[in-house]
Design a binder for these strands. Structure first.
Lengths: 338, 338
DNA sequence: CTGAAAGCGCTTACAG
DNA sequence: CTGAAAGCGCTTACAG
């Protein structure tokens, strides 16, 4: 057993050991070309011998930089967000930034607390999937500190800000068009809450397509529920009570769609045969569930890497007007609505 | 539009504004009781007016503490690890620690790089699900810096270290016992690689139960494959070529089991009827797939919070011998093997 | 090519 | 109850 070395070796100690000044040691550390080869090797040998570990925190403080990015999402136990995290994390890793993670569970108070913590940690930027109903002041506060911020997936009405998302209107439209083409005329819109910008947009595209096809938009067929599997179960249960039952349903997201299909199967309905179902997001489960879910792909992890790229550009000085990158979704036809 | 305030307000500026010294302002900040009420309020007012943001990085440097913990896992796009992250993140949040995340994709080189980065970031501790075959030196290096480390899910043979895991031997045994009770005598063991400590242990318990029941352990029935859905598909494909086909399969984990069942269904087999299937972990998909997967629950997120709790105890000074916390798994009987 | 010195933003004995 | 001073571990002009 070696003895535990409680104090970390400092750059000054390395310098002394190598017989140079702290400044020189620092320059060697960062690979400056102005240092003589011989000196360089001497210092590097000392670092190895003493087991020197660079203190990036101290260095960042002194040179006023930061190598962490804050990421705020609703929750982790949600395939949409865990995939988003994958995309973001991977991209930021390439830029040498580490991510500090925070989950709001859609509480404004938690969101405020997380932002404070992150700002105190000197994050170089923030990627935010904001709690619905967040006031613009939330964004202003961050901007005033000169910290870049990009919104992802959820837009904040009336706020000018970098944003990465998908074209929800188009997504709603292509889903509806596919259902109409199959001959459906009474189509339910299940799950999610009306205040979510993404739901508003999906519904808007959905309604547009119906009207264009000369169909009526029946407000009773839009049923709100939490965006969870249980929410889907509940929404479908409500739907069953309708006297003139819809023959198809477009769900706010895949998680809801899976809840709906689960309940259907329990009751003996066959999704894709008795009632057609379309979801949204294309989470991994969509391809696994039986029947496989037809869905609108939002390319979540691509959204994540775009967000990370834009944020990093801002961090490194990009000064253009706020940008919106809206990815085009695609209909993935599987078994639940062929 | 307010003007962007590029430089952050400093504690000295707050102090001047309030007409006190920097030391006093610092004490107010941290709620010291030695400061007069009036002074306190004066300083707090100045902080608000100037929009002061605490610089936790500088504070941590000065007082030699850290509020970040490193977490190293294989990958995020894996329900086992994302659930583990949930448990860990939630628990550390309570302790005021933020997590720095790293994913190795089971590459030793990446693991080394991640550890270096984390150590440079002055993490107060590390939770590690080590790459199989990691040498003990990996752990020693961290320990020499006085940074506590706890292993989770995967044990390192021959290394004395805090560890949180589940009783894989017992898990393998209860799965096998259930299958034997149902009358099976030829049972496959599908997926995972032999070098994984968890697989070795599950297999050990599994074999034990077979022998105890007077059954033969046929090495040909253990098929290795990556622990992915595709791995499950491949493993089942291989199984089909056997002249004397097994009537049941115990899979290394749920992801593999789901791949196996997917392939079965494609070929017209009914899991739980034609062939009984048992998985391991109880990931969310296990309850969603059709048929619902019978599995051994490893209570992943509980493992995560235990790991976080133990690490935090170490960080705050717990000095006992290395501890192993081995959680007891439970058989969750669903449709794929009733 | 290398060193002496100032300083990043904070905390913490110590003195009064 | 409050302030002056030293210092955490590093970087960065500046001078030579």
């Amino acid at each position: 057993m070696e003895q535990e070395q409680q104090r970390r070796v400092t750059l000054l100690e390395v310098a002394k050991h190598a017989g140079v000044s702290r400044a020189t040691a620092s320059l060697v550390l960062r690979g400056s070309p102005r240092i003589a080869k011989a000196t360089q090797e001497k210092v590097q040998a000392s670092m190895r011998q003493l087991g020197y570990v660079y203190d990036r925190v101290a260095a960042n403080l002194r040179s006023n930089v930061s190598s962490t990015v804050g990421l705020i999402i609703m929750e982790l136990a949600n395939p949409f967000y865990s995939e988003l995290l994958v995309g973001i994390h991977q991209e930021l890793d390439k830029c040498g930034q580490t991510v500090i993670l925070g989950t709001t569970f859609d509480s404004l108070a938690i969101q405020e607390r997380l932002l404070s913590t992150m700002l105190e940690h000197r994050v170089s930027g923030i990627i935010l999937s904001a709690v619905p109903g967040s006031p613009g002041a939330v964004i202003d506060r961050i901007r005033q500190l000169g910290v870049p911020i990009v919104l992802v997936g959820r837009r904040l009405p009336g706020v000018e800000c970098d944003y990465i998302g998908i074209n929800n209107v188009a997504g709603g439209r292509i889903a509806a068009e596919h259902l109409i083409r199959k001959g459906h005329s009474r189509i339910a819109f299940l799950g999610g809450f009306a205040q979510l910008s993404s739901r508003k947009e999906r519904k808007q595209g959905f309604d547009q397509a119906l009207r264009q096809a000369g169909l009526e938009v029946d407000p009773a067929l839009a049923i709100e529920s939490p965006a969870t599997r249980q929410g889907g179960i509940d929404a479908f249960t409500k739907l069953l009570c309708f006297p003139d039952r819809p023959t198809a349903a477009f769900c706010y997201n895949d998680t809801i769609a899976i809840g709906v299909m689960q309940k259907m199967r329990e009751l003996g309905f066959v999704p894709g045969k008795d009632i057609d179902i379309i979801g949204f997001d294309d989470i991994p489960e969509a391809a696994i569930f039986s029947p496989k879910l037809t869905t609108v792909s939002s390319e979540i992890s691509r959204m994540g890497s775009h967000a990370a790229q834009l944020l990093y550009a801002r961090i490194t000085g990009l000064q253009t007007e706020p940008q919106s990158i809206i990815l085009m979704p695609e209909l993935i036809i599987r078994e639940s609505c062929t």
